[in-house]
Simulated scan of single mutants.
Amino acid sequence: MRYFGNSPQVWMKGGTSPVSEADHAADAYLRETLLAARPDYGWLSEETVDDPVRLSARRTFVVDPIDGTRAFISGLPVWGTLVGLTVDGDAVAGMMAQPFTGELFYANGSGSHYEGPGGPRKLTTRKTTKLDQATLFTTTPALFKGEARNRYDAFERQIQLARYGADCYAFAMIASGSVDIVADPGLKPYDIVALIPIIEKAGGVVTTFDGGPAEQGGDVLAAATPELHA
């Protein structure tokens, strides 16, 4: 937390994506801590050079040290630390921590849970079934290109309330019962794996736009109910 709000050093990777010294520090801490506890697990992180040896592990940590780096370096508390666990490629457990607000969203064998202001509680999605009653988030409509943008715009026109930004926090809000739909194209596995069990164990649905499994990322649609997702 010493970096948040304190103008951390920032670089650009790939020409368009920012990464900060906080991303690197968090990645190093998580990698050292988690692999010390589970040395036989694989490791996939946005800020670690990928090692194909992870493909031989049944269990893999899938990590984004700071999901929402743009928000982080802008001083907006809608970023989070994502740690997911896959077993044979399926997302089975995950957590999203927002240390500035003191919130923790996590899923394990007993369900989906929240700890933070207001006290601990079990997470459950709200039961919205109609688009004209739904709240939608996406990072920005600008990520939808060509015909996909036309389809997105037509979809948004059916929605009661559409908002932009919030990254992983928007997905967590589906599990907490505050948001109904998140549609985000071009995600990587570390952007979504931790969030899949949090949403699904709260009663929601997470797939790619074409209905496939979302563990490998891609164009991802998450919804509070099967009716909204259909």
Results as ranks from 00 to 15, higher is better:
Val179Asp: 06
Pro120Asp: 04
Trp11Met: 11
Gly84Gln: 00
Gly94Phe: 08
Thr33Lys: 10
Phe4Gln: 00
Leu34Pro: 05
Pro213Asn: 05
Pro189Ser: 05
Asp153Gly: 12
Glu200Gly: 05
Thr81Gly: 01
Arg151Val: 13
Gly118Cys: 09
Tyr190Ser: 02
Thr60Gly: 02
Ser56Asn: 10
Gly14His: 12
Gly14Pro: 12
Gly186Gln: 08
Pro197Ile: 00
Leu136Tyr: 06
Ile66Ala: 07
Phe137Met: 11
Gly84Tyr: 00
Val49Asp: 15
Ala148Tyr: 05
Tyr164Thr: 13
His229Val: 00
Tyr3Phe: 15
Gly94Glu: 03
Met12Arg: 13
Ile192Thr: 02
Val182Leu: 13
Gly14Asn: 14
Thr81Ser: 01
Gly218Trp: 06
Val78Arg: 01
Leu228Ser: 00
Lys13Glu: 14
Gln216Asn: 12
Leu76Glu: 08
Glu21Leu: 15
Trp11Ile: 15
Asp90Ala: 12
Thr48Ala: 10
Ala222Lys: 02
Leu161Glu: 14
Ala36Gly: 15
Ser110Ala: 15
Leu195Thr: 05
Ser56Ala: 11
Leu221Trp: 01
Ile66Phe: 02
Ile199Val: 11
Pro197Tyr: 00
Tyr152Asn: 11
Cys168Asn: 09
Gln98His: 10
Lys188Pro: 03
Ala183Glu: 07
Val87Glu: 10
Arg59Glu: 07
Gly68Cys: 02
Phe72Glu: 02
Ile66Leu: 11
Ser74Asp: 09
Ser7Asn: 15
Asp167Pro: 06
Gly186Asn: 11
Lys201Arg: 11
Glu215Val: 03
Leu35Glu: 07
Ala222Asn: 02
Ala148Trp: 03
Arg126Thr: 05
Val92Asp: 01
Ala91Cys: 05
Ser17Ala: 15
Met95Arg: 02
Val53His: 12
Gly15Tyr: 10
Trp11Gln: 14
Ile199Thr: 07
Met173Gly: 09
Ala183Asp: 03
Ile174Val: 10
Lys201Glu: 06
Thr139Lys: 14
Leu34His: 04
Arg121Tyr: 13
Gly186Leu: 08
Pro120Phe: 09
Ala36Glu: 14
Arg59Asp: 07
Val182Asn: 05
Pro52Phe: 11
Thr125Ala: 07
Tyr164Asn: 08
Glu103Thr: 15
Asn6Cys: 13
Phe4His: 01
Glu200Tyr: 01
Thr101Tyr: 14
Glu103Ala: 13
Val220Trp: 00
Ser176Glu: 12
Ile66Tyr: 04
Ala166Arg: 15
Gly109Asp: 15
Ser20Ile: 14
